[in-house]
Design a protein around this nucleic acid. Structure first.
Lengths: 251, 251
DNA sequence: TATTGTTTCCGTATGTCCTACGGAAACGGG
DNA sequence: CCCGTTTCCGTAGGACATACGGAAACAATA
C-alpha cells in the first residue's frame, strides 16, 4: 500500500544504476544469469499485467527463473527497482516536437499521459522525490525549454513548471487510477458507480444538495459516454485552462 | 503498497456505515467493547502518527486493547475502514463561506489542503471511486454551487468541477507527499535533495540540459525558502491560473 | 437461579511480503 | 588442480489481512 518509493539507499549507487554507468566488466568470477536490464524489463512486465502490488521480488525472480535473492546482487532493493522501472517507462516518451510553446507542452502532456495509460502502476509512484534518471530529466528539460520560450521570467518559469508538472502527472494518475482499480477488483468504474446508484435513492437530499439535484435535472450528467471519456475530456479542459491562465498572466 | 481503497464490499453496507444509519439498538446479546466511531478515531490516530502503512488491523486493535478479529464485527474490512477514515477527515473542512465564486473555491482549496496537511495519509487514498459519505458529498455540493454561480453552463460546470477537484486533491497530495516520505524515511525533503547534489556534478550535461543550466545560472532556483514553501507557492499559483482560465473561457 | 437465544470477542491458521545472512557453486588465471 | 572473485540462492524472522468457529457475555424468560 501507500506511496511506493526508494530513496533510502546510497544516492551514488542509485544514480549509477539509473544512468547505467558502465558496470566495469569483471573478467573473473561467476557469470551473471541476469542483467539489470532484464530485471527491470521483467518487473515492468509483471506490474503492467498485475499491478505494482503483484510486483514482488519473488514474482520477478520467478519470471526470470532465478532465485529471489539473486536479484539483490544486481539491485539494492525493491525501492530502487521501482525507481528504475519508472525512469525506464518515462523514456518511452518521444519528446521531439516543434511548434509553439503551448503545442510543445500539450505534446509533453500527451506523451506522459500515454506512459501512464500503458503503465497504470505509475499512479503509485511518487514524483516528489523522483528518480533522477534520463527519462525524468529529459522531460524536465523539455518542459522548461517550452516555458522559457513563452516569455516568462526565469523565476516564473520554475513556478509554472511545478504547476504544469503537477497537473500533468496528477491528471494522468487519476485518469489511470480507474483502470488500475478495475483490473485489481475486476469491476469497471462504470459498473462501480451504477452499483452505487442506491445512494441517490437512500441518502441524497434535495435540501442538502440543491445544486447537485438541479444539475442532474438539467441533464448536465448525461454525458453520453463512458467514465473514461469523461475523465479524458476534463484532462484536456483543465490543461487548456491552466495554460490560458499562464499565458494571460504574462502581460 | 499501491492505491488503498475499498469498494469491493456490499455498497449498501458501506453507505450505511458512512452515513451512520442508526445501528438499531440491540437489546440482547453481549455488549460491544468498541464502537465504529472508536475504531475510526483510533485508525486515524495511528495513520496520522505512523502513516497508512502502519495502520494495520492488528495495530488499531492494539490501540483499543481489543483482539484483532473483534474489529471485523463492526467493520467489513480494511478497505471500508479507510473509506470511513477518509470521509471523517473530509468532514473537518468547515465549508461555510460567502464571497464571490472564486473566493469560495479558494476557501474550499484551503480547507481541503488543511485536511491533507493534518492527515498526510490522504495521499494514498484514491478519490476516483470516493467514499460517498457526508464529508465528500458536502464538498462536492459546495464546489458545484460556486461554479454554478459563476455563470457557466450546466455541462461546463460538471467538466470544470472535475478539473478543479482533480487539481485541488492532486496538488494537496503532492504537497503532502513530501512530509509523508519524511516521516516514513526519517529524511526531510530538503536533505534528500541536497544528498543528490552529486547528480549535477556527475551526470548533468550542459549540452543535454541547456535550459536547466541557464535557469540555474540565472538564479531561478535561489528560492530562499524551504521545499515546502516552494511547493505551497506553486499550489497557489496553479489554482489561480486555472481559475483565470475558467473565468476567461466564459466570455 | 437456570436456561436459551443472540451478539460480540478473539485464537488459530494460511498464504503472502521483504531482506539479512552465509554457504555453495561457477568461473578465469596461475 | 587450486585460489581469489563473483554470483547464486535456501533458510529464517517478523510483518500483513482475514476465514473459520468456538468461547464468553448479556437480556429475557422460565
Amino acid at each position: 500500500m501507500a506511496a511506493e518509493r526508494s530513496g533510502g539507499g546510497d544516492p551514488a549507487r542509485t544514480l549509477a544504476l539509473l544512468w547505467r554507468t558502465p558496470p566495469e566488466p569483471k573478467p573473473v568470477g561467476r557469470k551473471p544469469k541476469v542483467s539489470v536490464d532484464q530485471i527491470v524489463t521483467a518487473a515492468i512486465a509483471v506490474a503492467d499485467r498485475e499491478g505494482l502490488d503483484a510486483m514482488s521480488m519473488a514474482r520477478v525472480a520467478q519470471e526470470l527463473t532465478v532465485g529471489t535473492m539473486s536479484l539483490y546482487t544486481h539491485v539494492p532493493g525493491k525501492g530502487e527497482l521501482i525507481d528504475l522501472m519508472a525512469d525506464t517507462v518515462l523514456q518511452e516518451r518521444d519528446l521531439t516536437s516543434d511548434g509553439t510553446w503551448r503545442e510543445r507542452i500539450k505534446h509533453y502532456a500527451d506523451r506522459t499521459r500515454a506512459v501512464y495509460q500503458a503503465h497504470p502502476w505509475m499512479r503509485d509512484v511518487s514524483m516528489v522525490r523522483p528518480p533522477l534518471g534520463p527519462g525524468l530529466m529529459d522531460g524536465q528539460e523539455f518542459v522548461l525549454a517550452a516555458l522559457a520560450d513563452s516569455g516568462l521570467e526565469p523565476k516564473q518559469v520554475t513556478v509554472a513548471h511545478v504547476a504544469v508538472e503537477g497537473f500533468v502527472h496528477g491528471a494522468a494518475a487519476s485518469e489511470v487510477d480507474d483502470q488500475q482499480l478495475a483490473e485489481k477488483t475486476g469491476e469497471s468504474g462504470d459498473s462501480w458507480w451504477s452499483a452505487r446508484q442506491v445512494f441517490w435513492d437512500d441518502y441524497s437530499d434535495v435540501e442538502r444538495y440543491p445544486t447537485m439535484t438541479s444539475l442532474w435535472n438539467a441533464g448536465a450528467y448525461d454525458t453520453g459516454g463512458t467514465l473514461a471519456q469523461t475523465m479524458r475530456g476534463s484532462y484536456d479542459y483543465g490543461l487548456e485552462k491552466l495554460l490560458d491562465g499562464i499565458e494571460g498572466g504574462m502581460r
